[in-house]
Amino acid sequence: MSVFLTLWRRELAAYFLSPIAYAFMIFFLLIMGLNFYGVVQALADGGGNIQVMQAFFTWIFFWIPMLVVGPLMTMRLFAEEKRSGTIEMLMTAPVSDTAVVLAKYFGALAFFIITWLPTLAYVAILKLCGAGSAAIDYGSILSGYLCTVLVGAFYLAIGLFCSATTKNQIIALMMGFVLVCGVFFSGIIFAFITRDASVREVALLFCSVQHMMEFARGAVDSRPVVFYVSGAALMLFATVKLVEARKWK
């Protein structure tokens, strides 16, 4: 356990030791700020009776960054260690492959959550601007964030898997992006575009946009939780096997 914590601490610290992480956070928060601004603007013009944060979690500017952050945050994790050779130092230390994979994963997840934290300011801004308690439902805001973390957990695991396949960060990023988009858009296409009602019903269970709409409304469903957690677990398992694969050659 202490080995895992040591690894995890280094993985998390590594994000903050590189200037790219800060540039990334600024870019991310800029888009989220625009998203928030756009949502408030639209609702101010009379966009129907929907809560601000609920609209925030379901707008297109929420989803576009979500599709890239997973692969972006994880592309470095294994690829860079393989390229620079530090993987040899890491793997000859008395640590298990599983501990390494999990430490990298939870380091990325912690960074993902930290990146989201400043967006809590939007709630404070709404409060300061005198939005009534009817406009701010803390429960549904919390479940909105819960769904964000769940979706992120799955996409980060996909990104980590891709990073373990190559020593080139760009390849890891592209591969991760394609996989994440594949998961995301197949859900949307079959849920919203198909005419077949039975296909739609199944596809809605896998559709992240649908999940997000439900959670942002405050309706916490256990099925998406199981979907994202098991998806992440599957990708992590595959990553551990991929790291072990060097021993099969």
């Binding site: 280094r10 590594a14 030791l17 590189s18 620079s84 050779g85 530090t86 993987i87 040899e88 130092m89 000859t92």
Partner: peptide
């Protein structure tokens, strides 16, 4: 064991 690989890979940051 204490192992020093050939190219001495270290975390530069």
């Amino acid at each position: 064991i204490g192992y020093l690989p050939e190219s001495t890979p270290l975390y530069p940051e």
